[in-house]
Computed example of a mutant assay.
Amino acid sequence: MDRPKLKIPSMVKDPVLIEKRRRQIVDAAVELFIHKGFHRTTTREIAKASGFSIGTLYEYIESKEDVLYLVVEAIHGEVERRLREALCDSKSGIEMLKEAIRHFFKVMDEMQDSVLLMYQETKSLPPTHLPYVLRKEEEITGIFEEILRRGIADGTIRLDESQVKLMAHNIMVMGEMWTFRRWALRKHYTLEQYTERQIALLLNEMASESSKEPIRKE
Rank of each mutant, 00 (worst) to 15 (best):
Y69E: 10
Y69D: 02
Y132M: 13
Q120G: 14
Y69C: 01
C88I: 06
H129V: 10
D66C: 07
L116V: 05
P131E: 13
L116F: 14
L116S: 10
M96P: 09
F105V: 14
S90T: 06
I94F: 15
G93M: 11
D113F: 10
L130D: 03
Y119S: 00
V67S: 13
E65W: 05
F104C: 15
D66R: 00
E139M: 13
I75M: 03
R84D: 09
E95N: 14
H76D: 03
A100R: 14
S124D: 14
S114N: 14
K136S: 07
I61G: 11
R102E: 07
L87Y: 11
E85N: 11
T122W: 01
A100F: 03
M96W: 00
D109C: 05
S92N: 00
T128C: 14
H129M: 14
I75N: 10
E80F: 08
S124G: 08
V107A: 00
I75F: 04
K136D: 01
R81Q: 05
E110R: 15
S114D: 05
G142W: 12
L97P: 00
Y132T: 12
M96F: 02
E95S: 14
S90Y: 09
T141A: 03
E95L: 13
G93Q: 12
L116I: 10
K136A: 06
E139N: 05
I61E: 05
S114E: 04
E137R: 12
L134K: 15
D109E: 11
K123G: 11
S63K: 00
E121L: 13
R135L: 12
K106C: 06
E137V: 10
P131F: 15
P126L: 14
V72R: 02
K136G: 03
Q112P: 03
L117S: 01
A74E: 10
E95K: 14
L134R: 15
I75C: 01
R135T: 03
E121M: 14
F104Y: 15
K91A: 03
V133F: 06
S114C: 11
E121K: 08
M118P: 00
A100G: 03
F105E: 04
Q112L: 01
V115L: 04
E73D: 05
K64R: 12
S63Q: 03
R81G: 12
V133K: 00
A100S: 15
L97A: 02
L83N: 09
I101F: 02
D113N: 07
S63G: 04
M111G: 06
S114I: 08
I75Q: 00
R82K: 09
E85Y: 08
I143R: 13
H76S: 04
R81M: 13
Q112H: 06
R84M: 02
L117T: 05
S63Y: 05
E110K: 12
E138H: 13
E73W: 11
T122E: 13
L70S: 11
D109R: 00
A100E: 02
V71Y: 02
S124A: 14
R82Y: 07
